[in-house]
């Protein structure tokens, strides 16, 4: 592939190519790191997923696709996948829709909208771990503020994180709370790039607020909407920190995500082959979903 491209370069290239090109020194550190810590591990991870690979054992038995068939019949994996997909769907849609609503409300710059933007963005800079810990104790039945305030207005609070029915929805709500500010900021930045005269022209043509939003704002926001949706989806599928710190996957696996299960198999039970198979299934799902999203939202048309 590289050799095919050489003739298209300018003739002068050939002469200077003979002596050493210092460009290679500039790309060397990054390329070495990418080769050692990303490219090679991908291949190795695929190779490991075909083995019964326990840490500490001297030889690793080749098992073909046995890890994958075992995964296919593993109900704990299917549960983790269901949790992850439900979380991803709800959180990415919630985050983008609410982020769009908030951004369009806070579009004009006034002192109070600036203040509100800061407030909505603030949880985004905190770590998922800190957010998870704070919410775990905010929802605590004994010391939590949420239950205490609900009790004060006469509502008997449910057991948020201890209930099998409510634990996942509660984690999803916290996921949206944490990330909605990110969507808002990206969409606001994109909204501010829409030329004002587009709105003026639309208004002259008699377009009301809704038609202006549909026909001017939304099309202009399409790349940003695509970006935030893809990021939210990929982040959702990699769900780990939040459930680890809020519920540790409980109650009885009702919030266990795919990456939590991977961590459990790989770094607690040290079944590296099986963990690699989980990782590859996750990889294929992420690639597939991103490809579909890029297609549906037709990135190329806009770009």
């Amino acid at each position: 592939m590289t050799t095919n491209r050489i003739p298209t370069a300018q003739p002068a290239r050939r002469r200077s190519a003979r002596r050493f090109n210092s460009a290679y020194l500039f790309i060397a550190p990054s390329l070495v790191l990418i080769a050692v810590f990303i490219a090679e591990p991908i291949v190795q991870s695929g190779w490991m997923s075909l083995h019964d690979w326990m840490v500490g054992e001297s030889s690793h038995r080749f098992v073909g696709f046995a890890n994958y068939t075992r995964l296919f019949h593993d109900s704990r994996f299917w549960n983790a996948l269901r949790v992850t997909v439900v979380y991803t769907l709800v959180v990415s849609v919630g985050q983008v829709v609410l982020g769009l609503a908030i951004a369009s409300r806070l579009r004009r710059t006034t002192w109070y909208s600036t203040l509100l933007r800061t407030a909505y963005f603030f949880p985004f800079i905190a770590s998922l771990v800190v957010v998870g810990i704070i919410w775990k104790f905010l929802l605590d039945p004994q010391v939590g503020l949420v239950d205490a305030w609900l009790a004060a207005v006469g509502v008997s609070p449910p057991a948020w994180l201890q209930s099998t029915a409510l634990a996942l929805p509660t984690v999803m709500a916290v996921g949206i709370w944490k990330n909605v500010g990110f969507t808002m900021i990206v969409l606001l930045a994109s909204m501010q790039q829409v030329p004002r005269d587009l709105y003026e022209a639309a208004a002259l043509d008699g377009a009301g607020a809704w038609r202006q939003f549909r026909n001017v704002t939304l099309p202009a926001l399409r790349p940003a909407l695509l970006f935030t949706t893809v990021i939210a989806t990929v982040n959702g599928l990699q769900l780990f920190d939040l459930v680890f710190s809020m519920t540790s996957g409980g109650p009885i696996f009702h919030t266990e995500s795919v990456v939590m299960y991977l961590y459990q198999k790989g770094f607690v039970e040290f079944q590296m082959g099986y963990a690699s198979a989980i990782a590859w299934v996750l990889f294929v799902i992420i690639l597939g979903i991103s490809a579909v999203q890029l297609r549906v939202l037709r990135y190329r048309d806009v770009d």
């Binding site: 990418i34 050692v36 810590f37 990303i38 490219a39 090679e40 591990p41 991908i42 190795q44 991870s45 490991m48 840490v55 990929v234 599928l237 990699q238 990456v259 991977l262 790989g266 770094f267 590296m272 963990a275 690699s276 990782a279 590859w280 996750l282 990889f283 992420i286 690639l287 991103s290």
Partner: peptide
């Protein structure tokens, strides 16, 4: 292309390295 690779795919081999 490496932008598309989730960190979880590489974490096991990198740990071993």
């Amino acid at each position: 292309a490496t932008l598309m690779v989730p960190f979880q795919v590489t974490v096991v081999p990198v740990f071993l390295t």
